[in-house]
Simulated assay, not measured.
Amino acid sequence: MDPLTHALLGATAAQAALGHRLGRQAWLPGALGGLLPDADILIRSTADPLLAIEYHRHFTHAFAFIPVGGVVAASPWLVQRRYRADWRPLLAAATIGCATHGLLDACTNYGTHLLWPFSTLRVAWHWLTTIGPLLTLALLAGLLLAVRRQSRLPAVLSLSFALVYVGVAAWQRERALDLQELIAAARGHPVVRAEMFPSVGNPVVWRSVYQSGTTLYSDRLRVVDSAGSLWKPGSTLELLFAADLPPAAAADARVQRDFARFSYFSSGWTALSDSDASVIGDARYSLSRDSFEPIWGIRFHPGSATPTEWVDQTARNRVPVGELWREIRGTADGYRGLPTAGRVDAVAVARDSGC
């Protein structure tokens, strides 16, 4: 999640829990605790471009790190004599803030090592995008009112809204997965694995991705009631595996290792960019709705001192607000009613087959 939302969630949780003990200052250690785990962005190396993605949302985001993070976040207050009488609530506020970070990140697509060092599983619940304006504004309003009025109630109410919002998003995702299953069945596709990705700032429009054979099928879904739910056929692309690498890349041990690291990072959703076949991208994210333009990926230079190049196109990523709003309203072009089981229209079939 974005740093502002992390800080606000940590601050609001701390103010709600300890505002009666620390007054208006409870939010400060909570905010620092909410931000601290992202200090892992400092772990990087020019000699190893994948080190940053390997350790982002890693040990600093784990449940096991929370007590350590709480102490570190509270230390600016604990080292000052005038705050030592309140060391327990200050430490608790910072720890509460730190505890919110990993859980919030796990609600997104990226993957978070919540269970480190006991498991290497990257936990990703796919309920929220990394930017959620409604959630952020609700937390901000609750925190400001709580501090200004010296009351815990606004903070508690904004946290309650946040929980309801996340709960609705989780419910909507399950409904979207049901629609995805219907679409795949109508196409006659046996599904190897499937995932559902939320769109920015709302629980209505979802990006559906599923694998059938070695092909990924990507569609857009508008999930409302049974009568208003719609779908838009999208693009297809072939998954890329280590065995598909060119001979020069396959012969380079460092390339093979880095491909395995990138594949782990992207949960196996790896494919070549439609516009640049030299880029292996993370197929969970795309700059385009009609083709695969990875937001980030890798490019290999076998035999060189640093054979792996990190390709980052996040600066090009733009949210088409007008089009997204039309999708939410159900007026966007290309959307249609859901297919009946075992039947999908000829246009969708032609598009899926690449005709």
Rank of each mutant, 00 (worst) to 15 (best):
254 R>Y: 06
326 R>L: 15
53 I>A: 08
203 P>W: 04
341 A>Q: 11
217 Y>I: 13
174 E>A: 05
330 G>V: 10
171 W>S: 09
253 A>E: 15
289 R>I: 00
211 Q>T: 10
122 R>C: 09
73 A>N: 05
268 G>H: 07
210 Y>F: 14
16 A>C: 10
197 F>I: 15
113 H>F: 02
38 D>V: 07
41 I>T: 09
157 L>M: 07
12 T>W: 01
238 E>A: 14
132 G>C: 15
255 V>S: 03
308 T>W: 04
141 A>G: 12
303 G>H: 07
282 D>W: 06
284 R>F: 10
254 R>I: 13
63 F>K: 06
79 V>M: 12
142 G>R: 07
44 R>Q: 12
219 D>M: 01
188 G>W: 01
209 V>C: 01
169 A>T: 07
275 S>K: 08
99 A>S: 13
156 V>F: 00
111 G>K: 02
48 D>K: 03
58 H>T: 09
100 T>K: 02
127 W>V: 08
255 V>M: 02
311 V>S: 09
232 K>F: 00
202 N>K: 01
274 D>F: 13
285 Y>M: 11
291 S>F: 01
153 L>W: 07
73 A>Q: 06
18 L>K: 07
59 F>R: 10
175 R>E: 14
308 T>P: 14
185 A>K: 08
102 G>L: 00
305 A>N: 12
227 A>L: 13
155 A>E: 03
87 W>P: 06
29 P>Y: 07
22 L>S: 02
289 R>N: 13
187 R>H: 14
200 V>E: 06
244 D>K: 03
306 T>H: 11
243 A>E: 15
118 F>I: 09
200 V>W: 09
55 Y>V: 13
23 G>Y: 02
337 G>S: 13
302 P>Y: 10
180 Q>T: 11
179 L>N: 00
52 A>C: 05
134 L>D: 02
31 A>D: 04
140 L>G: 12
100 T>Y: 05
67 P>D: 12
213 G>S: 09
57 R>M: 14
349 V>F: 00
355 C>N: 12
131 I>W: 00
304 S>G: 04
257 R>D: 11
193 R>I: 04
96 I>N: 06
331 T>N: 04
152 R>L: 10
196 M>I: 15
192 V>R: 15
316 R>W: 00
46 T>N: 14
336 R>H: 03
185 A>F: 00
332 A>R: 09
68 V>G: 05
281 G>P: 14
98 C>A: 15
40 D>R: 09
16 A>Y: 07
209 V>Q: 04
245 L>F: 03
138 A>G: 06
55 Y>S: 12
174 E>S: 08
78 L>I: 04
